[in-house]
Design a protein around this nucleic acid. Structure first.
Lengths: 130, 130
DNA sequence: GCTTGACTTAGAGTCGACTCCAACGGCTAA
DNA sequence: TTAGCCGTTGGAGTCGACTCTAAGTCAAGC
């Protein structure tokens, strides 16, 4: 798979893919005799996992660390598991927080809905004069 | 409330508060005769709302736009409502997406759990030789 | 009167994550 | 054989959001 095809399948720009290889998120990408990258299905599975970590807020540096562990072999399994569990815990908390934010936002929207009907936002403390 | 007290109550650094005022997220902050800022309870409520928008992924530029609308008065109520509803919809989708990511992550962690017991990650296709 | 410390400003620097640029190579089609 | 692509590289530039620095003001305490 050349870089354009891989870009199309991952939704990551060719620029960014080269950048990821440069900083070590993608490693040992095969090359054709002319020097062009030749991405594999394994690269695809890996980059999809990288995307998941990134999309859930893990910094590239930490993903890089995970890649280091992965490269180091089976004696880093426990550390990788720990890393993923910590990340999953953060994610759980973050989702709960976002849900709270959403609830509050919906409260505010409800205020706006009735305010738009009245044409003003402020809610007077006292009944309007007759 | 001086900038330190306001910083303590919001969790936003004094640096960042000045920055927010500079870029127009905080407006018409009162000053003491010596030029020091004197934040009000209304400033507090506003900045907490700003934090909520920011924490849910709204760029400062869009929050700035909301501040513009707010400043323009009651004839922007409908537009503000729309902006918040759009944002709430994005947030809803984002939460669903994050939840999916979490589920997949948990699947992977489950794999790791059993892998750590075995001491290797790969799952052989065939039963082990006797 | 002098130091200390919190505050002020404009503007520069940092950081993470891209994003682009210039200069080049190799393949194909006219 | 030359034009037009697609690919390569190192390195520079951009962007959002801070974060810090330098130089200054001002009030309180010793």
């Amino acid at each position: 798979m050349n870089i354009q095809a891989f870009s199309a399948r991952t939704g990551i720009s060719a620029h960014t893919l080269r950048y990821y290889e440069k900083i070590g998120l993608l490693r040992r990408v095969q090359r054709l005799p002319n020097g062009h990258r030749n991405f594999s299905e394994a690269d695809l599975r890996w980059i999809e996992f990288v995307q998941r970590l990134k999309d859930t807020g893990m910094p590239l540096e930490q993903i890089h660390h995970y890649a280091d562990l992965r490269e180091a072999g089976d004696n880093t399994l426990a550390e990788r598991q720990q890393l993923l569990e910590d990340h999953a815990n953060h994610l759980r908390e973050s989702i709960a927080q976002q849900q709270q934010h959403l609830d509050k936002l919906n409260d505010k929207i409800a205020l706006y809905r009735s305010a738009v009907k009245r044409g003003r936002l402020s809610c007077p403390r006292l009944p309007q004069p007759a």
